[in-house]
């Protein structure tokens, strides 16, 4: 077992453990903090895959923005800081569905990877970020998704402003 495999195993255990704790926490704030741990674990897994750009983007966007958004949303909810363990009546049904989906995905991935190719050793001069940049704006590449992404972000912004302000009469 090489060191890299050990790092992967530890990071995966931490990620899965944090995810379980997140679902099992009684207080929402604790759940948010466990989410932070899980996201850090995912960033470490990106590092083991030598995807540095995605590791830092994971830190920057998920932990730096989405997590903070979630924390603010939790704070917006009344009485969410209290401890409460009301289990949704549909919880067991949802768990069953999730289990089925998980089994199906695992089956698909096992069948896919076994006949797949091993990771290729990339040359020392391979600069992934430059290639990503060129691909993003290439007309035959991802130019249209690139522009559509900005429209999507615009829609999110307008939607949030609308929801927050058209209901201003009812108070914040």
């Amino acid at each position: 077992m090489s060191a890299l495999q050990w790092v992967f195993i530890i990071a995966s255990l931490i990620t899965v453990g944090a995810a379980v704790m997140m679902v099992a926490s009684h207080r929402m704030m604790h759940a948010a903090l466990w989410l932070a741990v899980a996201l850090l674990g995912v960033a470490v897994i990106f590092v083991t895959l030598e995807a540095s750009f995605f590791a830092v983007v994971q830190l920057l966007v998920y932990i730096g923005a989405i997590l903070i958004l979630i924390v603010f949303a939790i704070m917006l909810t009344q009485r969410s800081t209290e401890a409460g363990s009301r289990l949704n009546s549909l919880a067991w049904g949802a768990a069953g569905v999730a289990g089925v989906i998980w089994t199906a995905l695992t089956y698909v991935f096992i069948r896919w990877v076994v006949s797949g190719t091993p990771m290729q050793e990339l040359g020392a001069s391979f600069d992934d970020v430059v290639l990503l940049g060129k691909a993003l704006v290439d007309a035959e590449g991802f130019a249209v998704p690139f522009e559509v992404a900005s429209v999507l972000l615009l829609a999110a912004l307008i939607g949030a402003v609308y929801i927050a302000f058209e209901r201003k009469g009812e108070g914040s």
Binding site: V57, L59, L60, I63, G64
Partner: peptide, 10 residues
């Protein structure tokens, strides 16, 4: 650099 700033906010 920017990502580590996010950890500080946390």
């Amino acid at each position: 650099l920017l990502a580590v700033g996010a950890l500080g906010e946390l």
